[in-house]
Design a protein around this nucleic acid. Structure first.
Length: 695
DNA sequence: GAGCACTGC
């Protein structure tokens, strides 16, 4: 047996590394039923947050902004809104809101709190997420919602006047909407100082949030009245172990480490002690599959008396059933090994993990404003992420985290991951800020300002698409598009469908391009069969109409999951497309856009597509790649495209998106006539200036 | 001839 070649610097108990690992355990759907109101109340009183109740209420009363630093298990997400409710903050029709970055968190926390309050979900306690509003406009006092939904509400009610307290939970995750909300709330508090704000964060960010809320014009009413409150939580100690030298191949090292953990735990500890599952953090599906392959090859050499290993993959591309498998408890005498992407860092919580193996890498999306190109790059994680990952080993008992890098490498990691707002295309956020009346982006107080080039790029794009005028203000169509929950180019397409008389079909296409992984193509022989199934939907013109065909077939054949299974479609994705379509349909009706059918006239439909995708034109070249109209960039067709193997007759296409992975790839293509790029691309621009633009 | 970090409206 090979020994574990790790150096263990010591235990990181509460008070050292791990009290920085704050993450809402409230994210987990609680399976233990609480019976009877008495036991609920005593369970509430036992939570670590309970003894800080009066202090918290005092701070919220006295300070405009309270930054709450709370560790896993302290109960802030479930208890704080209840304390506020009990203390009268929800009297006189006021609402206490608590935002979450993810839908599941908003719904599961709401149902737990409803049970604690003794209310039916949607009555006194409710939630609001996209497509689901389980709340009562009159009666709901505590409202859990996604931060995206709260942002949307500011478009309708800019002062968020129905709320007395707003708690932005998981603020350390720094999602785009969290950052936008913090900026807007700072502004709202100037106009409405009575609004109380709670920012729930990890230790590492707390001071930066404090500085953010106390800075600004000295005379402002919101300045100088923020405070940090620290809560301790419930967490078992987790030891951290580092490699002495960096591993040349972290995937292989991860497999070896899992193997060694298993053998060592098996040998040195008894049956009870030796159990405990292993969670491995890698970057993507390719790594995960390779790691699992290596482990599978080792299995035959497992000693006869050793526990068995149950090997599982976890990433977002898996079906719901496959994802659920990681929650099944391991059988007696076996140990689960879950090899996961970053999904297990915050989005998915698995109980019973005793060992974490951390590769130290993550794939993140970055955006290059000069080329307008998104790329997915593998980068070292931040110290906050490393701490968060380690914490996954200490949820149900003490644990060990094996970091596949030396301690000196940990010390040189960035403290936090750059906020998402600095890494994305700003077209939609800027359009929405303008819709809120924030025209001067230089004056908007970003928690972290995005790169100026990204803002400039987005403004140019909005101007070119006719969403903003020369003065930088919104045009009439821009105001409408800002309300639509889709990307600007897709919204533009919906609006011009009136002219091309194809609203019915464009609506479906808009919905289908908004969902990912519509086609499910498994590995091996089943994959070949699935390919044949998919071909039944294939349209000669390209992917957009192929998606349209798939959607129409889905609705025609009863919207069933079994039908999807036999036709290589994802039921989850298709159902989501149905929801998005019906939501977008309401917007079209509101804006008076007719839902006419093009009656099979694919030409008109494709012309309408060009009106949205006019910036995404590309020309086929002899080696099978494309060149972008803007920038003459080399583009490779994504293998999922129906045009992957075929040259379009005209030699020209528009595409939905491009992304840089190993190569620059374009996804969702449709053949066009190149003249359409000029005819339908610059319509709004032409009307206003009388000139055409060279791209 | 070959690929899919994760959210959210």
């Amino acid at each position: 047996m090979t020994s574990l070649q790790f150096w263990k610097p010591g235990t990181a108990g509460p008070g050292s590394t791990l009290d920085r690992a704050t993450q809402a355990e409230e994210n987990v759907i609680q399976s233990a039923p609480l019976s009877g109101n008495l036991s609920i109340q005593s369970a509430r009183a036992r939570l670590p947050i309970a003894k800080h109740r009066e202090k918290l209420l005092y701070c919220i009363e006295q300070y405009g902004v309270t930054i709450v630093v709370g560790q896993t298990g302290c109960g802030k997400t479930t208890q704080l809104p209840q304390y506020l409710h009990e203390a009268g903050w929800s009297a006189d029709g006021s609402v206490v809101a608590c935002t979450q970055p993810r839908r599941v968190a908003a719904t599961s926390v709401a149902s737990r709190v409803a049970a604690e309050v003794g209310s039916i979900l949607g009555d006194e306690v409710g939630y609001t997420i996209r497509f689901e509003d389980v709340s009562d406009k009159e009666r709901t006092r505590i409202l859990y919602m996604t931060d995206g939904m709260l942002f949307r509400e500011t478009l309708v009610d800019p002062l968020l006047s129905r709320y007395s307290v707003i708690m932005i939970d998981e603020a350390h995750e720094r999602s785009v909407y969290t950052d936008l909300m913090l900026g807007i709330l700072k502004k709202i508090r100037r106009k409405r100082p009575s609004l109380r704000l709670i920012v729930s964060s990890a230790t590492l960010d707390a001071t930066s949030f404090l500085e953010y809320f106390t800075s600004g014009t000295p005379a402002s009413s919101s300045g100088d009245e923020a405070i940090i409150v620290s809560l301790e939580g419930r967490m078992y100690p987790v030891q951290t172990a580092y490699l002495q030298e960096p591993a040349p191949d972290y995937v292989r090292k991860a497999a070896e480490t899992v193997w060694n953990i298993h053998l060592q735990a098996n040998q040195s500890l008894g049956e009870q002690q030796g159990s405990g599952d292993i969670l491995v953090f890698l970057t993507g599906r390719e790594d995960i599959d390779r790691c699992l392959e290596e482990l599978t090859e080792m299995l035959p050499s497992l000693p006869r008396n050793a526990m068995r290993l149950r090997l599982l993959a976890l990433h977002a591309g898996l079906s719901t059933d496959e994802q659920l498998a990681v929650f099944e408890p391991a059988e007696r005498g076996s140990r689960k090994v879950i090899v996961s992407t970053n999904i297990a860092e915050a989005s998915v919580t698995i109980e019973g993990i005793k060992f974490v193996v951390d590769s130290g890498f993550v794939k993140i999306r970055t955006y290059n404003p000069t080329t307008a190109l998104s790329s997915l790059v593998t980068v070292p994680i931040s110290r906050a992420s490393a701490t968060q990952r380690a914490g996954r080993a200490g949820r149900t008992s003490s644990g060990i985290c094996y970091r596949l890098y030396p301690e000196r490498a940990f010390n040189s990691l960035p403290v936090t991951t750059p906020p998402e707002i600095t890494r994305v295309d700003l077209t939609t956020p800027i359009l929405q800020l303008k819709s809120l009346g924030i025209d001067d982006l230089m004056k908007f107080e970003w928690v972290t300002a995005p790169p100026a080039e990204s803002a400039v790029r987005a403004l140019e794009g909005l101007y070119g698409a006719g969403m903003i005028g020369e003065g930088g203000g919104l045009t009439i169509v821009g105001e409408k598009v800002a309300e639509c929950p889709v990307e600007v180019n897709i919204a533009r397409m919906l609006f011009s469908s009136k002219e091309f008389k194809c609203g019915e079909e464009i609506l479906t296409i808009a919905a289908m391009t908004a969902v990912q992984d519509v086609f499910v193509i498994p590995e091996g022989a089943a994959g070949a069969l699935a390919e044949l199934e998919r071909r039944k939907f294939t349209a000669e013109e390209g992917d957009h109409i192929t998606l349209l065909n798939a959607y129409n077939a889905f609705t025609r054949y009863g919207r069933s999951s079994s039908w999807c299974k036999s036709h290589a479609l994802s039921f989850r994705a298709m159902s989501r497309a149905v929801s998005i379509r019906s939501q977008l349909k309401k917007y079209m009706q509101r804006f008076g856009l007719p839902l006419e059918s093009c009656q099979g006239d694919a030409k008109r439909l494709r012309q309408c597509l060009v009106s949205g995708y006019w910036r995404n034109g590309a020309r086929w070249v002899a080696d099978g790649t494309y060149r972008s109209v803007r920038g003459n960039q080399v583009l490779h067709v994504h293998p999922n495209s129906v045009l992957f193997t075929r040259k379009p007759r005209s030699g020209w296409v528009i595409f939905h998106e491009m992304e840089e992975t190993k190569k620059t790839q374009i996804r969702i293509l449709t053949e066009i006539d190149p003249d359409w790029l000029l005819d339908y691309g610059h319509k709004y621009y032409d009307k206003r200036t009388g000139t055409s633009v060279s791209s």
